[in-house]
Design a binder for these strands. Structure first.
Lengths: 164, 164
DNA sequence: AGAAAACTTCTTCCTAAGAAACATTTCTGT
DNA sequence: ACAGAAATGTTTCTTAGGAAGAAGTTTTCT
């Protein structure tokens, strides 16, 4: 306790205090919680909200070759457990957005592939989501702010993944 | 479609493209998803993980006068529905971290108040959380990065709350 | 070739949180 | 003063997601 990395040391232009750090991180959480619901408003075809995971799955499949990815890889990318993603895929398949397709070379893997209807929804969702991002993010912090935010986020993510 | 606020316009130093925006925002999500679990590691008294909402409740009660807040206010602050928070409070009370206390002046409101045990847990959790923030955030983006992040987050949050 | 190890998907059970309905108490307009 | 509106907390019902494990498939090692 009281080591060089804990709390405030003695220099006048030292680092942030514990409370500064906690407050800063809390602000990030609050911002995301307040904004995220806005960014998916009216994104669904029916004009309603679209659940976050659905959107992420659609976007990732949309920019994948042949609009398909292995289930397990997709699950990892959207931070879901394999079991959880199986059920999400069931729901999205039932809605007609994606279908399962077995891989000929490796019979363990099952591809999740976007249906034509799903691709249409994905395209539409992407356009609307981008428009909402311009309205609620870009217009607030500007292009510089967005660039800086992306830079910081990338640094944090890469460090987290590499670190442990 | 193709209006002045959609996609890339024509100037050479125009704004970010739709994909730039979506990628940037996606990076923020990924960073938070990767880092947040690390920041609550070993924060619980038993050395295990602590659920995010628990930590937020403890922190907010800790810095409130008399370590107490009305249920509904606390629910709003941690972004839970009133019904959801009732049950979270039940669990935390069952664990001995907080207790309910009825308000004498307004008989509708019920205060959630930190027990001595809860205060101890909150203090300890705060110290450990701050140490993890230094390790996984401050050391990566520096004091300037943290300050910039907080500034951007605050701008976004305030705009979101004021806007609609 | 054949056994062992690692992977992928799916199933079952459980917990967490939202939505809506409701009872109680307070506030507001007339 | 009083009827209606609003606020507060709880209960009930439904859904999303995690953990553990089963079954089948591929890869690797001997």
């Amino acid at each position: 306790m009281g080591g060089p990395t804990a709390g405030r040391a003695d220099g006048p232009t030292e680092g942030p205090t514990d409370d500064d750090l906690i407050t800063a991180w809390g602000l990030v959480h609050e911002a995301l919680r307040d904004i995220d619901p806005m960014l998916l408003k009216g994104v669904d075809v029916s004009g309603g909200e679209m659940a976050g995971p659905w959107f992420e799955v659609l976007i990732r499949l949309q920019r994948s070759p042949e609009h398909r990815l292995p289930m397990s890889r997709l699950a990892r990318e959207v931070s879901l457990s394999s079991g959880g993603f199986t059920k999400l895929a069931d729901r999205m398949a039932h809605k007609g957005y994606l279908a399962r397709e077995s891989c000929p070379t490796d019979r363990r893997v099952v591809y999740a592939v976007l249906t034509p209807a799903g691709r249409e929804v994905a395209d539409e969702a992407k356009v609307r989501h981008a428009a909402l991002l311009r309205e609620h993010v870009l217009s607030v912090i500007g292009a510089e702010g967005v660039a800086k935010l992306a830079e910081l986020a990338r640094a944090l993510r890469d460090n987290a993944r590499a670190g442990e």
